[in-house]
Design a protein around this nucleic acid. Structure first.
Length: 532
RNA sequence: GUCCCCGUAGCUUAAUGGAUAAAGUAGAGCUCUUCUAAGGCUUUGAUGCAGGUUCGAUUCCUGCCGGGGGCACCA
């Protein structure tokens, strides 16, 4: 639609002998200002008038009227015919409505969640998990072939800490190891020794403890993915990335990487003054996360030759990732170009609530259980509430998770959307059982009376498209919330004007709303209970 | 010290350089009693400060104030 109008405007300008220049077709925030509008800039009133007159006398069926407005805006009001047709289109395409093929042929890999074996899956992992899988869905709806990957830190000092704890029979191996590492020099040395042995796979006893612990950890993660509805296509491990990464760095030592204090580093500030030096291979000869990630990029591409690789992680490694990309640009320029880092904020809880027995770490499961308590044990509602809270705002900002707000039944919550969807299910079912039919012919209902629900429904595909272009799933959340509000409004208003509830047109709108809500929630990964 | 991110109604958040800065919630008032009131209507209320660019700035630039994060062997 947007493109059609853009073309229309360009043609109009051309036939008026005006340079097309830059203009943006957009939705006015206020529906009274039309369904679409554009602005030419400058303040040539005469020109402005000429365009409006021209467009009005050459308008296609889908435009009802073109009006000039103050400040040089030109507003398009779409026709009733268009809206009726769009409702029909929603119903016809059903669970395909909203999909487009903009990214057809693209192969996208989204890496997210990345929990570390031997450690807990805490609330911090919920952010990348929810954001990553939603971004993956959004790209799929835009026509791309999408694979989801999980990268797990199965080697490194944190693992050594946990193994140290396991070897001593500690009940909570990781916290015990972490504490000992900080507090006792002797333990620190032991842990570093273990770390090396894990890399080398050289000690029988450690291998046994390690393998068993890793297996248990992965099973534990699997159970959480199941609950959250996450589906990974690939699992990568740091132990794999490390090996290859180290080779890559060593091959380029003296060229890209330099030796310094017996470690191998990359002086990123040489290429960009805003960046800093980072260690790629430690003085103990072990690859750091930087080198591992370099190796990972290669492994990923060999498994799945992507055209785009998205890595979802926390904000705190934003600068580090820039350094990594700078290094990748020199080693694998073609991969660096395809890599996009998507940093997100932290998930925090209001202080004082939910202290965890294991210390200051709160597991994802504990949070889910806590939310469940508030919703009569309904897992689908609890998961939806959590996902909604994460997705409702722009990626990158911190979130203070307020449990009570997350399960609020009014306004801004996942429950509200799930309820709106479930409600239309029963309306449709009732109508169906009474043999009522739907029709997109308005039968006496005018658009004014329907309060603009159609004016939102047809926009769904645009929202999906924009969410993909800007990595902004929150556009979809905002849209669905607005749509649900509009539907309530529409429904309440129908009661007031006394129209028959069995109006075929109303039924058609209800059906269309039901479809869009379902599709939207599917993209967000929010469960859609049929009944509530 | 330096680099990056953030600062919008009481609170939580929106706003591809555009129109009277948008919602939810909280506050005030009103509304049904046949279909889910988990609803609807009305109302109060905001861009940290000072400049600059622009026809037009929450958005871009500079400085300041305030909060968070990174800055060599953790990830």
């Amino acid at each position: 639609m947007k493109e059609k109008l853009r073309k229309l405007i360009t043609e109009a300008l051309k036939s008026l002998g005006i340079e097309a220049g830059d203009f943006v077709v957009e939705h006015p925030t206020d529906l009274r200002n039309g369904d679409y509008s554009f602005h030419l800039g400058g303040k040539d009133h005469l020109l402005h008038q000429k365009i409006v007159v021209y467009l009005n006398s050459n308008k296609p069926y889908y435009v009802e009227e073109v009006r000039g407005a103050g400040g040089g805006f030109v507003n398009f009001y779409l026709s009733t015919e268009f809206f009726k047709k769009s409702i029909g289109e929603v119903i016809e395409r059903e669970n395909e409505f909203g999909k487009n093929e903009n990214l057809k042929g693209e192969k996208v890999m989204v890496e997210h969640t990345d929990p570390n074996p031997f450690k807990e899956f805490h609330i911090g992992h919920l952010m990348p998990n929810v954001i990553g899988s939603t971004v993956a869905n959004v790209f799929a709806w835009n026509g791309a072939e999408v694979k989801q990957a999980c990268y797990q830190g199965d080697v490194g000092i944190h693992v050594a800490k946990a193994v140290w704890g396991l070897l001593r029979g500690e009940k909570e191996p990781y916290p015990a190891g972490a504490k000992a590492y900080e507090e006792a020099d002797e333990s620190k040395k032991e842990i570093q020794e273990i770390n090396k042995k894990i890399y080398e796979h050289s000690d029988e006893e450690i291998n046994k403890v390690y393998d068993e612990g890793k297996k248990l950890s992965l099973e534990y993660f699997d159970s959480i993915y199941k609950r959250l509805g996450t589906k990974f296509d690939y699992f990568f491990f740091e132990s794999d990335g490390g090996k290859i990464g180290k080779e890559i760095v060593e091959k380029n030592k003296g060229k890209i990487f330099e030796e310094s204090d017996s470690a191998v580093v990359f002086h990123a500030e040489k290429y960009d003054p805003a960046l800093h030096t980072r260690v790629f291979i430690s003085s103990a000869g072990l690859p750091t996360y930087e080198a591992k990630e370099l190796g990972l990029a290669k492994i990923k591409f060999e498994k799945y030759p992507y055209t785009k690789s998205i890595v979802v992680t926390g904000n705190e490694i934003k600068d580090y990732f820039k350094v990594l990309l700078a290094a990748m640009k020199l080693t694998f320029p073609e991969l660096a170009e395809k890599t996009k880092h998507l940093p997100h904020g932290m998930l925090r809880l209001p202080t004082g609530k939910m202290s965890s027995r294991t210390g200051d770490v709160i597991t994802a499961e504990a949070l889910i259980e806590e939310v469940k308590k508030k919703v009569k044990g309904d897992e689908a509602v609890a998961i939806g509430a959590i996902k909604y809270m994460i997705l409702r705002q722009a990626i990158g900002n911190d979130i203070v998770f307020d449990i009570d707000k997350s399960v609020s039944t009014e306004g801004d919550s996942g429950v509200y959307l799930q309820y709106a969807y479930a409600r239309t299910n029963s309306l449709l079912e009732r109508a169906d059982s009474q043999g009522q039919t739907l029709s997109t012919d308005s039968q006496g209902l005018t658009l004014r009376e329907t309060h603009g629900i159609e004016k939102l429904l047809y926009r769904f595909p645009e929202v999906v498209e924009r969410a993909g272009k800007e990595y902004a799933p929150h556009y979809i959340v905002t849209y669905l919330t607005e749509l649900a509000g509009s539907f309530n409004n529409f429904y309440a208003h129908e009661q007031i004007i006394g129209d028959s509830p069995e109006s075929p047109y109303r039924l058609a709108i209800t059906k269309a709303f039901n479809i869009v809500m379902k599709n939207g929630l599917d993209i967000l990964g929010i469960p859609t209970p049929e009944r509530m």
